[in-house]
Design a protein around this nucleic acid. Structure first.
Length: 601
DNA sequence: TACATAACTTAGTACCGGTGAA
DNA sequence: TTCACCGGTACTAAGTTATGTA
């Protein structure tokens, strides 16, 4: 930890922390119920760099349920004829059958990959018979699964309750671990079941068989002196290790990309929370030197060295547009997506003049998860001229920044500020934008729903900056119409209420008695109530419309310093529950506890 | 410096179950 | 009581970064 972070930490902890010691390995007492709920890890001393825990005990993973062969009457047809498949081939066939309604199964690559992997699971006889996927008829299987899921929906309350209880039992037994002296929730204790790989976007591996993970694939990580989880009967773990320099409990290697998957702790855990807090502290340190860094890269636009110029322009994009770093990717292994450093010439267009603005850069590329980034941005003349230079004599498919990669960029950033990497800019710009927008948009005279709309709008500004998109919900138009008709009905109701109020007033003028006066009062209240309800609905409609294609969740969860939101809630008397749901409150417990209304990012 | 790998964060979507209106 | 809707959550893919190795 740096001196600055240290300072921030002690500030945050205030006088609360009383010389608490790092828990010792040999103390293995079970945490008390109350203690585990109230434990404020943020008031404790941090572990030395690199050490993640001293004691770790868990029950190991939960494996996917074994395959249950189809009933005899569910048939698979090949070339119009019934064919009984071997168990292994049948299992893989069911994966395809379950996806039959999905457009994936119509895609050439998906079908090709699936068929290739499916054939590997077939017996030699099956292999020689089944040679053409188009001759395979999975519809009966598909219907069977639909019926099954329908039946599940139709289950009685008792049956549903039973399943729920079973899930709870599983969670209770496998969903927690003991890390040091505390019981902590595990994020993903279930092993991913086998199935067909569904990549996002135009993924070259879509449709490949994701194989079943066995205990023999599993590496267990826990304390030497903990109760080591036993493998399922008749099986062995691949390895049991005791590495307290890492945070994971279980890992295995997945067969599609050959990458390692992990079981780790929940965001509410100390180990994740601490890291999250640290991330925002790094972003706050950037705030202190961002002006200097900006001046520096503007200077570098003029550098004699091509590499330096490219670095400076890339950094400008990362800072101004919140682009991701953009690592190189192995061709043919993943969908063709890019970030800043991996931008190609074909991803930008230069307009010396566009719609009355000078030096406009038009971006159009697929970013993470194959989400399209499309933006027209006026840039400074120097940037524009540099881009022209970088593009000279290049083909569309050539790298825009051919002298640059993320490693070079991050090394440079490290020299500018300790702990600075490309992604810190996203965190910094997201958080600072939220803070500014909240200041700008919050109207002190607004009621709570209107203030929350302002919050959401501030949140939305960040989501737009970070290009967090979502597919418009399937039912969007309909639900919008429903809401509109609710608003219309409410308006009518209001008109009625107003009319009634008017006549009550007239009545009271004539009668001049207590009773009619009271009637006027109650009618007035009714009008007010309906006005409020209408306003709430209208706010809701605005909010929803503006949110059609924008996802707020990602920025809220990963980019916005939660202390900004907590402080805003405190300042304006907004209950924190209106901003954060239960899970989010658990994740941000540290921020909710420590941020006061005057917190500044 | 190139490259591979491990570890960890960030991401969108499918699905489930509770809730409130009809 | 039924059903649509919506928020919350589970799931797991897809990024970034650090680090070791040649």
């Amino acid at each position: 930890m740096t001196a600055q972070e240290e300072e921030e930490d002690s500030k945050a902890k205030k006088a609360k922390s009383k010389d608490k010691k790092v828990p010792e390995a040999d103390k293995r007492k079970k945490p008390k119920k109350e203690e585990e709920q109230k434990w404020k890890w943020w008031e404790e001393e941090r572990y030395p760099e690199g050490i993640k825990w001293k004691f770790l005990e868990h029950k190991g993973p939960v494996f996917a349920p074994p395959y249950e062969p189809l009933p005899e009457n569910v048939k698979f047809y090949y070339d119009g004829k019934v064919m009984k498949l071997s168990t292994k081939a049948e299992e893989v066939a069911t994966f395809f059958a379950k996806m039959l309604d999905h457009e994936y199964t119509t895609k050439e690559i998906f079908r090709k990959n699936f068929f290739k992997d499916w054939r590997k699971e077939m017996t030699s006889e099956e292999k020689s018979t089944i040679t053409n996927l188009s001759k395979c008829d999975f519809t009966h299987m598909s219907q069977y699964f639909k019926a099954q899921s329908e039946a599940r929906k139709q289950m009685s309350k008792e049956e549903k309750q039973k399943i729920k209880e079973e899930n709870e039992r599983l969670l209770k037994e496998y969903g927690y671990c003991v890390m040091d002296n505390h019981k902590e929730r595990i994020a993903n204790f279930k092993i991913e079941p086998p199935g067909l790989f569904r990549g996002r976007g135009n993924h070259p591996k879509m449709g490949m068989l994701k194989r079943r993970i066995m205990p023999e694939d599993i590496i267990i990580n826990c304390s030497k002196d903990s109760k080591i989880p036993p493998p399922p009967p008749g099986h062995k773990w691949k390895e049991v290790r005791h590495d307290n320099k890492v945070t994971w409990l279980v890992s295995w290697t997945e067969n599609i990309q050959g990458s390692i998957k992990y079981i780790m702790l929940n965001p509410s855990s100390r180990i994740k929370g601490e890291k999250d807090w640290q991330k925002y502290e790094t972003a706050r340190r950037l705030k202190k030197c961002v002006d200097k860094i900006r001046n520096q890269y503007r200077e570098d636009w003029k550098s004699k060295e091509m590499k330096v110029r490219q670095r400076a322009v890339a950094l400008y994009f990362i800072d101004k547009l919140a682009l991701r770093a953009g690592n190189e990717k192995e061709e043919g292994e993943t969908a063709d997506t890019v970030g800043c450093c991996s931008l190609r010439v074909e991803h930008i267009k230069l307009h010396p003049e566009l719609d009355g603005q000078e030096y406009v850069v038009e971006f159009d590329f697929l970013g993470k998860d194959s989400i399209r980034y499309y933006n027209k941005v006026p840039v400074e003349k120097r940037v524009f001229k540099n881009l022209q230079l970088f593009m000279e004599n290049k083909q569309p498919e050539d790298d825009l920044f051919d002298r640059l990669n993320t490693s070079i960029l991050n090394k440079h950033l490290q020299d500018l500020m300790e702990g600075l990497t490309a992604k810190v800019f996203r965190t910094y710009n997201a958080s600072i934008t939220l803070q500014q927008q909240l200041k700008e948009l919050t109207n002190p005279d607004d009621n709570i729903p209107a203030k929350i709309l302002s919050y959401n709008r501030a949140n939305r500004a960040v989501a737009i900056l970070c290009n967090h998109q979502r597919a418009p919900p399937k039912t969007f138009e309909k639900s919008m119409m429903n809401l509109q008709s609710k608003i219309d009905a409410k308006k009518e109701q209001l008109a009625d209420a107003r009319r009634e109020l008017k006549s009550a007033k007239a009545d009271a003028k004539v009668r001049r008695d207590e009773k009619s006066k009271k009637t006027v009062e109650s009618k007035k209240k009714a009008v007010q109530r309906i006005e409020e309800q209408l306003m709430k609905l209208e706010v809701q409609a605005t909010d929803r419309e503006e949110n059609k294609q924008i996802a707020l969740g990602t920025s809220k969860l990963n980019y916005l310093d939660p202390r900004i939101s907590v402080a805003w809630c405190k300042k304006w008397g907004i209950p924190i529950e209106k901003i954060y749901n239960k899970t989010q409150r658990e994740k941000f417990a540290w921020a909710i506890d420590m941020a006061e209304e005057d917190y500044e990012f």
